[in-house]
Design a protein around this nucleic acid. Structure first.
Lengths: 227, 227
DNA sequence: CCAAAAGTGTTGTTGTTACACCCATGC
DNA sequence: GCATGGGTGTAACAACAACACTTTTGG
């Protein structure tokens, strides 16, 4: 018998803002099933496009967004995950700076919005499972790769980085120890400029030095990071 | 336009024997394309079966094998990875004890055999990439989870475990330090029996205590293992 | 008695944790 | 002058790495 399985992609795009915490990008579906429910951006893969291209296209189409960091997460293929047909979905997760984008709902999406990962609405299909899987992956990932920098501004006060890690790991970190450790790796540079937000002493800005990071990484260095 | 993509699964099954090192299970294809070439066991997913069930079925059908440890690896979906049609393949990797199985080529497979991962033949499709990805994953995995026990006999001399880690990590380990560290976690038990292989002093047998391991793991313990 | 593999402790070094006070700014 | 957040060092402790000789067996 002929195979009748469709292939889709879904994207879990994470955003972070120091005051807001970690958020996920969701859309509302314009058409059934799950019409008007919140769901992950995504859709069927075209015959000639690669999976990653498909994800980027869907993100562009549905939310007007072009993510830089994107990585395959997991493939969800339970026979009953879509009430219409058998659909196998290859999920990706991405990291962006929400401020960089003006959200714009298009094509199959009626609405687009960021939701704090602690206050997610009910989601269509098995998208709840997908988001949960992505959060776990992100938590695991930051322990050995400094992905967090995709979520911060190119230049940031050190406290932003610290807050990001505290939010993601969901626990307090000692300011002094954290800074000592991170700075010890040498891929973060302190700039001369300072910035001030609200009250308090102005903070120096810091910058992620990708070149140095990749040099270290190439040389087989193992970032037993951030735990 | 109607989507015309097929969904397949492929399996990278690893086996280990102290004298042989780490091997991968391969089959030769009975039919074109890549007829008579070595390839990973796998095939198209049926309409009503889950991905994992599909992998297990293919392994059973093509090689007469039922693996216990099986985990999703990555999904390969380049548009040109199959010369006939667009096929997206969800790859899994598994761990077995080769001695437990009598290999038996069936259905689409003409032959089945174990190949040491250092001496792999030319492989069909993009299976080389899949195997490489699986090896990397396995290497990464053993650093924080004691998956290795799926590869060893239920009872084993400590040197087998040590040799396994040395093989997988491709470097020497200090016998004393390694044993101290592993035994310190408390999920390995020393038995009273001994065994002797070839020359030398008889070795005590050891056993993996799954219950203790899961207790530790549940309690949030992080195995900063085996590096 | 020789070869082969198993077994075992100590010490120096390194990394990790815990901990508290002063500084620069806005209001 | 006070509230807010930024910035910094040290000491105790734990983990890790380096290291060599003795034991038990077979041949």
């Amino acid at each position: 018998m002929q195979q009748a399985i469709r292939v889709a992609v879904d994207a879990v795009v994470f955003g972070y803002e120091p005051d807001e915490g970690v958020s996920v990008l969701l859309i509302t579906r314009k058409y059934p099933p799950f019409q008007k429910q919140w769901a992950l951006p995504g859709g069927l893969v075209k015959n000639e496009e690669s999976l990653e291209v498909a994800v980027r296209r869907e993100l562009q189409e549905e939310a007007g967004m072009a993510v830089s960091y994107l990585e395959q997460l997991y493939t969800f293929g339970a026979p009953d995950r879509d009430p219409r047909n058998r659909v196998v979905s290859v999920a990706y997760y991405g990291l962006v700076r929400p401020k960089d984008y003006q959200l714009l709902a298009q094509t199959d999406a009626e609405d687009v919005a960021w939701f704090n990962i602690k206050k997610l609405p009910r989601l269509a299909f098995d998208h709840k499972t997908i988001v949960t899987t992505a959060i776990q992956r992100l938590r695991g990932k930051i322990a050995y790769e400094p992905v967090g920098f995709e979520l911060l501004d190119p230049q940031f006060p050190f406290s932003d980085l610290e807050k990001l890690y505290q939010t993601l790991l969901d626990r307090d970190l000692d300011r002094r120890n954290f800074k000592k450790k991170i700075m010890g790796y040498g891929f973060i540079e302190e700039l001369r400029e300072t910035v001030q937000r609200g009250a308090g002493r102005p903070a120096h800005l810091y910058r992620f030095n990708k070149k140095k990071y990749f040099e270290l990484k190439e040389s087989g260095y193992n970032f037993d990071l951030f735990v």
